[in-house]
Design a protein around this nucleic acid. Sequence first.
DNA 1: CAGTGGTCTAGACCACATG
DNA 2: ATGTGGTCTAGACCACTGT
Lengths: 234, 234
Amino acid sequence: MSQSSDTTSYKDIKQTVLDRIRSGVWKPDTLLPNEQALALEFSCTRTTVNRAMRELAEEGFLERRRKAGTRVLRAPHRQARFTIPLIRDEIEAQGGAYRYALVSAETVDAPEWLTARLALKQAQRVVHVRCMHYSNNTPFQFEDRCIVVQSVPQVEQADFSTLGPNEWLVETVPFTNVELAFLASRADEVVAGFLDVPRDEPVFTAERITWLQGQPVTFAKLYFAAGYRMTTRF
Amino acid sequence: MSQSSDTTSYKDIKQTVLDRIRSGVWKPDTLLPNEQALALEFSCTRTTVNRAMRELAEEGFLERRRKAGTRVLRAPHRQARFTIPLIRDEIEAQGGAYRYALVSAETVDAPEWLTARLALKQAQRVVHVRCMHYSNNTPFQFEDRCIVVQSVPQVEQADFSTLGPNEWLVETVPFTNVELAFLASRADEVVAGFLDVPRDEPVFTAERITWLQGQPVTFAKLYFAAGYRMTTRF
DNA sequence: CAGTGGTCTAGACCACATG
DNA sequence: ATGTGGTCTAGACCACTGT
């Protein structure tokens, strides 16, 4: 169907299986025929069936266990996937003009809460950067970030006056592990001022901790402008 | 390494490639050797290399294009994956005791904003349900939901006094498409009352629209208790 | 046009979990 | 012990796309 001619593609199989689930032919908890039987039905090899079913399982529709077989999941444990773009890309994708502005940058001793949050063994020097991201000169995001000097020594020579710390980090420390959290916070005086909203306004906030091979690199709080929505479809 | 003996697994290749990216051997924008060359290097078939590289591309580390080859992505367009469990499971996973309470359920005409939001052709009857989810008798989430009668006629006979509308829907309409958004909203009097927080408190909120084969099924606003964080690692 | 990844076949061995 | 999915090989043809 999707291919040019007579062979059955793993995509065809995925589509057919999804249709059967949708239409109720295969209801939740149903045990599906095994791969060999499906290969026979679809006139293809077991390899092809395997790929189709494996992907459907990854996408959260099926559960597969050796010997037990493949069954339809009743409560789709499906996962929402949010793509996390660079903020510049996000703004430009919306047709906005991106503008960056540095607010402050200074090297300080990590405060106690940060030492605890990053599980540092002892207080360390960090570069504390605050900056703004604008879309068409309207505040879009206020960023408050600390970068651990010991993990990224070059940071003390970095110039954040024109390049944002996130873009700098992406270029300097390309590979990282991340913990990301979304929450609703209340605008304090500083945040309210930069985002141009009233004090105590609810602010959609992201907290992001980044590690490089187990070493904590940076802690960032990203405060989004009023009305921001993090959206996905699946 | 991961397998019992002498063959090279696609997992080994993924690990090796990741290590090379991490350590800077293959920097961002680097063009990688083609699959045939890698198969030679790893002493395996191209099929195995293909699976490893394909998965790394899906996970956002690489970009692959026919003829152009495979390159390391500079700004990892990596995606945060949030698993969306049933709220009962989420609470019980935290060791809490789940309790459900119906607040109200009535059949009404869809208000204008909902008609627009769901792109209904005309105003329709909807079942409007409001309910609470508790963890250890502490408010965890206030749910305000409308279910389109025409899309799910059985809803008029449903009894939401003991079973939540989400669990009911999952059993009744197992397969759906979803639009999910997270935002920060301000507690109005109703929400503040049910969540037991002050008025105007920032509240982490999820909006969820669900379709069944193109037909809008339900619109839900989920208001989370103070301090809620939606967290993920990658 | 030519090089790269995308996919399929046919067959094999194996890991794992269940009865 | 046995059935199921998990993976690998060896080879082939094809789709796409940059030159």
